[in-house]
Amino acid sequence: MHTVRRGFGIGRLLLAGLGVVALAGYFDYVLGFATFQIYNYFSYFTVQSGMAAIVAFAAAAFVAFRHTTDPPWLNWFRLLVTTYITVSGIVFLTIVIQSSSLDYTIEVPWSSQLLHFWIPTIALLDWLTDAGKARLPWKILVWVLVVPSIWGVFTLIRGSIVGWYPYFFLDPVQVRGPLETVIYCLVALLLFIAIAAVLTATSRLPPRAQGREPTAA
C-alpha cells in the first residue's frame, strides 16, 4: 500500500510540474499577440483553475508520501479543482469544434493542449484510481458552483469596463443577445454539477469497488 501511495505522490508531483510548464508555455504563446494585454492572461478560468490545480497536485503528493489516506479537506479541494479543469477542457473543445464549422479557426498550441486536455484527463484518472480518497458528502455540489459564479459575475463586470472578455459567449458583441449568454452560462453550471456529481459518486463507492479492502469495524 505504501508503495502504491508513493507512486501516486510521484505522479502528482510530475503532474504539478507539467502544469507549471503548460501555464508558462501558454503565457509565452499569448504574448505573441500584439493586442493582448498581460493582465488579461490571468482572467481566463482555465489559467486560474490551472494554478489551483498545481497547488492541489503538490499538496496531494505531499500527503500521499506521508499518509495512507487523504484528509477530507484535501479531497474537497481536489474534487473542486478536478471539476474546474475538466469543464474548462470540455468547453474549450466545444468552442474548437464549433469554430471548424464557421469562418474561423482556433489555434491549439501544445501548451493549450496540455492545459485543456492532457492535464484534466490525467487528473481524472488520478481521482478515479485513487483508493485513499475520503467519502464526500453530496452538499459539495453546491460549493462547486461558488467559484464559477463569482468568476462569471466579476468577468462580466470587468469586461464591461475594459471591453475584453476571455470567452466569446460572455461578450455582448459576439452573441445574439443577453439570453444567449445566460443559456451558455446555465449549461456551463450544469456541466460543473454533472462532473462534480460523478466524482462525488465515485468517492462514495464501497471500499472494495474503489480497489481497497474494507477496514475492520
Rank of each mutant, 00 (worst) to 15 (best):
T129E: 01
V147I: 11
V108E: 11
W110G: 00
I140T: 14
F117P: 02
D103V: 04
L114R: 12
V144W: 02
L145W: 09
A131E: 08
Q98G: 09
W143K: 12
V153M: 06
I150V: 12
F154V: 13
T155G: 02
V147L: 15
T105R: 15
V153A: 05
D126S: 10
P137V: 09
D103Y: 00
T129W: 08
W151R: 03
W151I: 08
F154I: 12
T129R: 07
S112M: 10
Q98T: 15
P120K: 02
S111P: 13
V142H: 06
W151Y: 05
I150R: 05
W127K: 01
L115P: 07
S160Q: 14
W143Q: 01
I140V: 14
L115T: 02
F154H: 03
R158C: 08
W127A: 07
I150C: 02
D126G: 00
G159I: 04
I157F: 10
L115M: 13
P148N: 01
I122C: 03
L141Y: 08
D126E: 12
V146G: 07
S101R: 14
G132L: 02
K133E: 01
L156Q: 12
F117D: 14
T105C: 00
V147C: 08
D126A: 02
W118K: 11
R158Y: 09
L125R: 02
A134S: 15
L145Q: 08
W138S: 04
S160R: 07
S160V: 06
Q98P: 01
Q98A: 14
R135S: 10
L145M: 03
L115C: 00
L128Y: 07
E107A: 14
I106V: 15
D103C: 00
L128H: 01
Q98K: 14
I140R: 09
S149C: 10
V108T: 13
W151P: 03
L115N: 07
W138F: 09
L136V: 07
A134M: 04
I140K: 06
T121L: 13
Q113P: 00
L125W: 03
V146F: 11
Y104K: 00
P148M: 06
S101G: 02
I119G: 05
D126C: 03
G159M: 06
S160N: 15
V142L: 15
E107V: 14
R135I: 13
G159E: 05
L156A: 01
Q98E: 15
L145N: 10
A131Y: 02
A123N: 07
I106W: 03
